[in-house]
Write a protein that binds this DNA or RNA. Structure first.
Length: 424
RNA sequence: GGAGAGAUGGCCGAGUCCGGCUGAAGGCGCUCGCCUCGAAAGCGAGUAGGCAGGAAGCCCCUGCCUCGUGGGUUCGAAUCCCACUCUCUCCGCCA
């Protein structure tokens, strides 16, 4: 969320940012509630100050053996009034909090202004879209033909948008996970984390999934627990309500996790194959940085994710999301899109974002620039490094061969026990 | 799941039974001085966060809030009452 004082002091700037995002929120209620709250606080604090003073007097009188009945009776009324005002202030603060939690982050100046994904800006491409001398198949057909993916079994044992990986398919999924984790931990300097896949609502609020996007999450019945939609949630919340020593920054974490998404609004999109599932695997990269470093760190993080595709030799491009397509909590996002022959298009496989202090403020993650200095909010970043299911889909499609088999990318062969080709 | 113990500042740890200069003793750690060629030891000083005001963006002053969280009792709560959360020990169960 944005800083209360920042919103108070820069309403035009916030309003402008909301407009660029195409979000329809006005700040008039915020301003009313904020002003009323401050007014009441001054009133109630004056009363509390009085009460504190008189309470001292009561203590003194009692000690001296004098009667304090009169002023005690007087304070009874004051205390009653304080209680009433406190309740009112609390109500206003709750409302203020709600309003603030509903305001998205302010896009960075370098983010292009635009309406939707058609206005996203292509930054660079790597490789060429794969060409075939035969008629290529979509990955869901390849997977079923080779008996390494079963959508029917997934649908039977659970439901739509669940998939069973079989044999070398299961092995390939696991190989991709291990390859990515090894790359990021050994070569890119990330510390490996294996988090819980279930978190409480405080964590979901900390990273911005709640309260706005409850409908996209799976909640455990009768409990304050949610299945994580991404490892970003548990990993970023690792340092919730902490003040980190400045010398520990930047912190890099890489985490594998299952990801669970209800995706309330996605019905009818990407209905076939591995692209949009209720459960999928992902290796996530998370960074905590000093504010002045966060944009340089975003470039590095994006490059780290790209490296996976380069080593897998999968063609891709990088786009900067425009203001209208930017995620709620993000100030700037690069999407990495891999070439998918079945879509005849680039398809998102990673999303790398700088949240600046937006998540840090919600989650109360701070650091001390110097041992004596006042604590400030860190900047948090994260990006997929990468989405595993989509990577497998991209491998199957881009590495398919005319005889129906699929070649295994060279870097994955050691992770596949030396298997070079997935065949029948 | 059952029984018991506990949760206090960066850490350890008093205070809770008997509510009143205790935002909190003492110790450790850390920071800055003194000492030293330098270091250690020793000595001295300083060391939580938030909110609202103050012709005040950093500094400073005043007030308010915070002793796991949320309620309650009271003129007044770290201290009394209730609920919840978490941690530890024992038993049961399990991978």
């Amino acid at each position: 969320m944005l800083d209360l004082k920042f919103v108070r002091n820069n309403p035009e700037l916030v309003q402008e940012a909301l407009q660029k995002r195409g979000v329809d929120i006005t700040l008039s209620e915020f301003q009313e509630v904020d002003a009323r709250r401050r007014e009441l606080i001054q009133e109630v604090e004056q009363l509390k100050s009085q009460r504190n003073k008189v309470s001292q007097e009561v203590a003194a009188k009692k000690k001296a053996g004098e009667d304090a009945g009169e002023i005690i009776a007087e304070m009874k009324a004051v205390s009653q009034k304080i209680k009433e005002l406190d309740d009112e202030v609390k109500g206003l603060e709750q409302r203020l909090q709600e309003i603030l939690l509903g305001i998205p982050n302010i896009p960075h100046d370098s983010v292009p202004v635009g309406k939707d994904d058609s206005d996203n800006l292509e930054v660079r491409t790597w490789g060429e879209p794969t060409r075939f001398s035969f008629d290529p198949k979509p990955h869901w057909e390849i997977g079923e033909d080779l008996d390494i993916l079963s959508f029917a079994q997934g649908a039977k044992i659970t439901g739509a948008r669940f998939t069973v990986y079989r044999g070398l398919g299961a092995r390939l999924e696991r190989a991709v996970i291990n390859f990515m984790l090894d790359l990021h931990t050994r070569e890119h300097g990330y510390k490996e984390i294996f988090p819980p896949f279930i978190v409480n609502s405080d964590s979901m609020i900390g990273t911005g999934q709640l309260p706005k996007f409850a409908a996209d999450m799976f909640k455990l019945e009768g409990l304050d627990y949610y299945l994580i939609p991404t490892a970003e949630v548990p990993v970023t919340n690792l340092h919730r309500e902490e003040i980190l020593p400045g010398e520990e920054l930047p912190i890099y974490y890489a985490a594998y996790s299952g990801c669970f998404r209800a995706e309330a609004g996605a019905a009818g999109r990407d209905t076939r194959g591995l692209i949009r599932q209720h459960q999928f695997n992902k290796v996530e990269l998370v960074k905590f940085t000093r504010p002045e470093d966060s944009y340089a760190e975003l470039e590095k993080l994006t490059n780290n994710a790209e490296r996976v595709l380069q080593l897998l030799e999968l063609p891709y491009r990088v786009v900067t999301l425009c203001t209208g397509d930017l995620g709620f909590s993000s100030a700037k996002t690069y999407d990495i899109e891999v070439w998918l022959p079945s879509y005849q298009a680039y398809k998102e496989i990673s999303s790398c974002s700088n949240f600046e202090d937006f998540q840090a403020r919600r989650a109360q993650i701070r650091y001390r620039p110097h041992p004596k200095a006042k604590a400030e909010y860190v900047h948090t970043l994260n990006g997929s490094g990468l989405a595993v299911g989509r990577t497998v889909a991209a491998i199957l499609e881009n590495y398919q061969q005319e005889d129906g088999t699929v070649a295994v990318p060279r870097v994955l062969q050691p992770y596949m026990g030396g298997v070079k080709v997935i065949g029948k």
